[in-house]
Amino acid sequence: MKSYKVESLIYYTKITSDSKHIVKKSQEEIQSKLDEYAQKGYRLASTNSTSFGMAIYVYLYFEKDE
């Protein structure tokens, strides 16, 4: 049997001259979540993202065998 977890992260756009500010911020946080779930025995099964208004939503789907 498998166990599943979903982690959602939200990043807001802002007025800046750095066009990659979301990429820079999200890489750190996403890597942290990957490491956190890997320590618990989960693996990344899938990802998804969407934008709405001034925000970008990133979904990380994890699974592990029980």
Rank of each mutant, 00 (worst) to 15 (best):
V23F: 07
E7G: 02
V58N: 03
D65L: 05
L34S: 07
Q27L: 09
A38E: 14
L44Q: 09
K40P: 02
T13A: 11
Q27G: 10
I15E: 05
Q39A: 04
M54L: 09
L44K: 11
S3I: 15
S3L: 15
A55S: 14
T16P: 12
Y61W: 12
E63Y: 13
V23Y: 08
V58G: 00
F52I: 15
N48K: 07
S46P: 00
S51D: 00
E29F: 08
A55W: 04
S26I: 03
Y61N: 10
Y57K: 12
E63R: 11
S17N: 14
S8T: 13
E63C: 10
F52C: 07
R43N: 15
K24M: 07
L60Q: 01
E29S: 09
A38H: 11
Y37F: 13
S19R: 12
I30E: 02
I10S: 07
A38T: 12
L44G: 06
K24I: 08
K14E: 09
S8P: 00
A55Q: 14
K20W: 11
A38I: 06
T50V: 05
I30R: 02
K25L: 10
M54E: 06
H21D: 06
K20F: 15
F62G: 04
L60F: 01
F62W: 06
A55C: 08
K33T: 05
K14R: 09
T47G: 02
V6F: 00
Y59H: 01
S19C: 02
K20G: 14
T50E: 13
L34Y: 12
L34N: 08
T16L: 12
K25G: 01
V23C: 07
K20H: 12
L44D: 05
S8V: 13
K14M: 04
L60I: 02
D18A: 09
K64N: 08
E28C: 05
S51G: 02
E7A: 08
S17R: 04
G53V: 11
Y61M: 14
I56T: 13
Q31C: 15
Q27N: 14
N48H: 07
E28A: 13
K20E: 15
S3V: 15
E28D: 10
S19L: 08
K64E: 04
